[in-house]
Design a protein around this nucleic acid. Structure first.
Lengths: 189, 189
DNA sequence: CGCATGTTGGAACGATCGATGCAAGATGTG
DNA sequence: CACATCTTGCATCGATCGTTCCAACATGCG
């Protein structure tokens, strides 16, 4: 094996994800991506392809990072549907409270910028949001909700998740965010 | 009066607002703004100043357009705080259902792109969100909520409003949006 | 009509955008 | 050590970015 890469590919992808997360697709310029990852332009392009491909890989990386956390929060036996909602939103609150990552949520930032994405990016964002919705619905069914209740609660929990991301971006305090999450969990009881 | 403008300034501002609304600040290029308004570059700059100033005037125009609707919805005597929430979110649903305007909400789109805005833009977005929050809180107090309840409900209603904007951008159906709004109004009873 | 004033279209500016090409460097194999 | 292979830094591409300038035009006033 000759000419081995001088950097950790996965760590670089993690940092690129943070650039898209903080700045959004449009404002995540190649210069900001090279600066954020520490890579040169050549390394970026040869490793991840063009900007659109890197964005999609960042979305995938985002899912791989947080999906297990949500999965774990949803998996345990829950006494009620509202416990599922509370557990889910707690993961979101924890992520937002993490000082290592940008404010808000990569998926939400990307969703609001959908017109700025190409067809593949748009499709991937929509598919990931639908995936979250389905995951929530499944967990709510397992927690004893009937079909109609599960569908409605999944939608509303997804909505609460999005609202936390927006309010976080706007600079709202973690206390305010916790209040919103608690109210959303209370609704479902 | 010599050299009168060949266009309706207010109508041009309305169209510019729609460009920012649909594309977000970053993707609202001068070319898109000139195309959307029908104005030439010279007319745009001489009438509204640079892009940042035009953006702030668009935000102001947005407030002037929808503030009266929200104000009317909040003003009437309401039987309960939850009626206030329902009335407020109904205005949002109506705006989103309007085929004449882009998806989502200019303020929400701008909030998620806050890092891309200059200092004045950021301050204005935050101030407008705070204004909505205060307006909601006042209306809830007048509807009989105590201080703590009013503060919490105002925050959660604002959150629901933001979530509707995000879900709308992501392509969710108006039925789904109505479900979210109804659930939010139900919470407060 | 001649002039002053304000508007408009279009050319052009430097800066930055995403993307590519290429030569130099590094490394494992013969 | 010489070669093949892969990576990296850097220069550079055309396109687009926001912005400015200027000449041509239109109109109200003297």
């Amino acid at each position: 094996m000759v000419g081995r890469k001088q950097f950790d590919v996965d760590e670089a992808l993690r940092r690129a994800m943070h650039v898209f997360w903080r700045w959004g697709y449009s404002e995540a310029s190649i210069d900001r991506l090279t600066e954020g990852t520490g890579l040169g332009r050549s390394s970026l392009y040869s490793t991840f392809g063009d900007k659109s491909a890197l964005f999609r890989k960042s979305l995938e990386r985002y899912a791989q990072t947080y999906h297990p956390l949500y999965d774990q929060a949803l998996s345990g036996p829950h006494p009620s549907p509202s416990a599922v909602v509370a557990a889910y939103l707690q993961v979101t609150l924890n992520r937002i409270a993490d000082p290592e990552v940008p404010d808000g949520c990569l998926l939400t930032v990307s969703a609001t910028q959908i017109p700025a994405l190409d067809a593949e990016g748009q499709a991937m964002v929509r598919a990931m949001i639908d995936g979250v919705r389905a995951m929530l619905e499944q967990a709510l069914l397992e927690a004893g909700a009937d079909e109609r209740e599960a569908a409605e609660l999944a939608l509303c929990t997804l909505a609460a998740n999005k609202s936390l991301a927006v309010l976080s971006r706007a600079g709202f305090s973690s206390e305010d965010l916790a209040t919103v999450a608690a109210a959303a969990a209370r609704t479902s009881s």
